[in-house]
């Protein structure tokens, strides 16, 4: 049994990674909760966000955290345009069509990325990439601490938007009652696209927070999106708090099973827990009964 000096850093590492998983899952669960579609293009769009941060940093010398002012709004606009221009239009209101459209989008985006950016794995260099912070005796890389804080701030902002603004109320109203929403004058196409845009903006934030301690390649999104799907199902489809808790939980499980089973088997723990949870709580940890 490894002692606390090894377990604590591992848990902290898992929590910081988990916060970013949560952010990716938050976007996914928002889109699922409102549009009732599974966005298969989520990973590919995260990858685009990471490249945006990468090029803003290497070409224009912008700090990844300064990119928070540029990349999330740009990703929001991209998400809005994708939903309004392609996904909503090509879907014709049928879930299976929408599923295939987002899957197709992800294939197109990833292959365009391969063509333009090549398959090289790239990293950026920041002055704080190797700085560490000491937390209860463990050393945690600075970018991971920022990522943890940033993910929670973003989740908080999203929660406030959903709770206290007319847009948030309209998004929640539309998720359950489309006819009622139309009758109070909510433009469903617009609000659907806003929801999709917000979900994709979360990926923009995740990209800015992630790159200082991670890498980018055309396939980088795939690993994230599989874990994000797991988190969304685990937390309860469409549940915000579920996605947050699920993200942190999965991050810690991954880190601890990596510690005990070896790095290459780390993800086994995630899916083992996933299966166990679904056996006992088919609607996820915080999901509502259908």
């Amino acid at each position: 049994m490894p002692d606390l000096a090894i377990i604590i850093p591992s848990v902290l590492n898992g929590l910081t990674t988990g916060a970013l998983y949560a952010l990716v899952a938050l976007g996914l669960t928002l889109i699922y909760g409102v549009l009732h579609i599974i966005n298969f293009a989520h990973g590919a769009l995260l990858m685009l966000g990471l490249y945006a941060v990468y090029y803003l940093n290497t070409r224009f010398g912008l700090d990844p955290y300064v990119c928070l002012l540029i990349v999330p709004p740009a990703m929001f606009a991209l998400g809005y345009a994708l939903q309004r221009g392609i996904i909503g239009r090509a879907g014709h209101g049928r879930d299976e069509n929408i599923l295939l459209v987002t899957l197709g989008l992800s294939i197109v985006i990833e292959n365009l990325a391969l063509f333009f950016f090549k398959s090289d794995t790239r990293i950026i260099d920041t002055p704080y990439s190797f700085e560490v912070v000491q937390i209860i005796g463990a050393f945690v890389p600075e970018p991971k601490v920022f990522a943890f804080i940033g993910a929670f701030v973003t989740a908080g902002l999203l929660w406030a938007l959903m709770s206290f603004t007319d847009l948030g109320r309209a998004i929640r109203a539309l998720a359950k009652e489309r006819k009622g929403a139309t009758l109070v004058g909510i433009n469903a196409d617009h609000v659907y696209a806003m929801s999709f845009g917000l979900g994709i903006a979360c990926l923009g934030v995740a990209a800015c927070l992630l790159l200082p301690s991670y890498y980018v390649s055309p396939q980088v999104g795939q690993g994230f999106v599989l874990i994000a799907f797991t988190i969304v199902v685990l937390g309860g489809m469409g549940s915000f708090v579920g996605a947050l808790i699920g993200g942190l939980f999965i991050g810690v499980v991954e880190a601890l099973s990596g510690l005990f089973l070896g790095e290459s088997l780390g993800q086994i723990g995630i899916f083992a827990i996933f299966i166990v949870v679904l056996i006992f709580r088919p609607t996820g940890l915080l999901g509502h009964k259908v």
């Binding site: 007319d166 109320r169 929640r172 109203a173 998720a175 359950k176 009652e177 009622g180 929403a181 109070v184």
Partner: peptide, 14 residues
């Protein structure tokens, strides 16, 4: 066709 997942207040606000 009220919004079942929103509070009474939020329904009225909308």
């Amino acid at each position: 066709h009220i919004f079942p997942n929103l509070s009474v207040r939020e329904n009225l606000e909308l």
